[in-house]
C-alpha cells in the first residue's frame, strides 16, 4: 500500500482533536465566563529516509493559550454577580488547594458564610477567603473590595470584609487546567498567584460575562475541517483504487 494513505490518516487523526476543541467551544456557548483557546496549530514533521522527500506529516503544535477577549456582558441586577473588565482574572481555590484563575463572576455566600462561586470554588481574597456575617447586605466595589452593611442601618458605615484577588493578565499568557480554571503559563507561577500586569484591575457588579465563543467563526472552521476531511478521505480512496489496479495487473491469467 502506498505510504500516502498514512500521511492522509495522520492529518485526519490530528484534526479530530481540533474538531473536538471547536465542538467543545460550541457546547460552552452558554457557560458563564467561558474563554475560548487560541486555535491549535499544526506543524509539519518531515520524515527523512530513502526516496524523495514526499512524506511531510502533520503534527500537533502545542499552542493552547486562553483567549481573554471579552464575552457579552448581561446585566442581571444580582448584587453578587460580577463581570470582570479587560483582562482581569479572579483568583479561586481549586479542588486540590492550588490557586486557579477564572472569569466566572456568579458569586454567592456559602452555608459557612464564605464567598464562593456557583460551581462551589472558594473565592480568594488578598488576605485569604472572604467571610460574610449572616444577614448582611454585601456589595462589591469596582476595585474588588467587598463590603457589607446591615439592612437595618443603611446609613451606617460599611463593614470592610476583604479584597477580591484580582489580577491583570494582559502580560501573562494563561493556560487551562484540567478542571477548566486558568493558570499562568510561566513555570514558576503554575498553580500559584502571579504578579498583576500594568493595567488596572476592575469589575462591574450586577452583571455577568457570558462565553466569548464566536459561534459563526466556530461553524465556519467546522465547515472548513469538514471539507478538508472529505478531501483526505478521497485521497485514501484514490490510493485504494491505485492499489487495486496494481494487484489486478499482477494477477496471473486464468
Amino acid at each position: 500500500m502506498d505510504k500516502l494513505a498514512f500521511t492522509a490518516l495522520a492529518s485526519i487523526d490530528n484534526e479530530s482533536n481540533v474538531r473536538a476543541q471547536i465542538t467543545n467551544s460550541l457546547a460552552n456557548v452558554s457557560t458563564i465566563g467561558f474563554k475560548d483557546s487560541f486555535s491549535l496549530a499544526e506543524q509539519s514533521i518531515q520524515i527523512k529516509g530513502e526516496g524523495i522527500n514526499s512524506r511531510v506529516l502533520p503534527g500537533m503544535a502545542n499552542q493552547e493559550v486562553i483567549n481573554l477577549s471579552p464575552g457579552a456582558v448581561n446585566m442581571t441586577g444580582n448584587i453578587m454577580d460580577v463581570a470582570l473588565n479587560d483582562k482581569t482574572v479572579l483568583g479561586v481555590q481549586a479542588d486540590n488547594g492550588e490557586v486557579g484563575f477564572t472569569r466566572r463572576g456568579d458569586l454567592r455566600v456559602s452555608a459557612t458564610g464564605l464567598v464562593e462561586n456557583t460551581v462551589g470554588q472558594l473565592i480568594l481574597g488578598e488576605n485569604g477567603p472572604i467571610s460574610v456575617p449572616p444577614g448582611q447586605l454585601v456589595s462589591i466595589g469596582p476595585d474588588g473590595s467587598v463590603t457589607s452593611k446591615s439592612p437595618s442601618d443603611p446609613e451606617g458605615a460599611p463593614l470592610n470584609l476583604g479584597q477580591l484577588m484580582l489580577r491583570d493578565a494582559s502580560e501573562m499568557p494563561l493556560i487551562r487546567r484540567a478542571d477548566g480554571l486558568f493558570q499562568p503559563l510561566a513555570d514558576e507561577f503554575r498553580g500559584r498567584d502571579f504578579p498583576t500586569g500594568p493595567n488596572s484591575v476592575s469589575l462591574q457588579s450586577g452583571a455577568l460575562e457570558g462565553s466569548n465563543v464566536n459561534p459563526v467563526e466556530a461553524m465556519i472552521k467546522m465547515m472548513d475541517f469538514n471539507r478538508a476531511f472529505e478531501s483526505k478521505i478521497k485521497i485514501i480512496s484514490e490510493i485504494k483504487s491505485i492499489d487495486e489496479t496494481g494487484s489486478s495487473m499482477m494477477r496471473l491469467p486464468q
Binding site: 482533536n17 473536538a20 476543541q21 465542538t23 467543545n24 467551544s25 457546547a27 460552552n28 452558554s30 457557560t31 483557546s37 491549535l40 500537533m60 502545542n62 499552542q63 493552547e64 493559550v65 456568579d106 454567592r108 456557583t118 460551581v119 499568557p173 493556560i175 487551562r176 487546567r177 484540567a178 477548566g180 503559563l185
Partner: peptide
C-alpha cells in the same frame, strides 16, 4: 512544550440557582 494541549469534553448544567 511551552503550553499543553487540553481538550475539552463539553458542558453541563451544574445546578439551577
Amino acid at each position: 512544550a511551552p503550553t499543553g494541549l487540553m481538550l475539552g469534553t463539553g458542558t453541563r448544567v451544574l445546578a439551577t440557582e
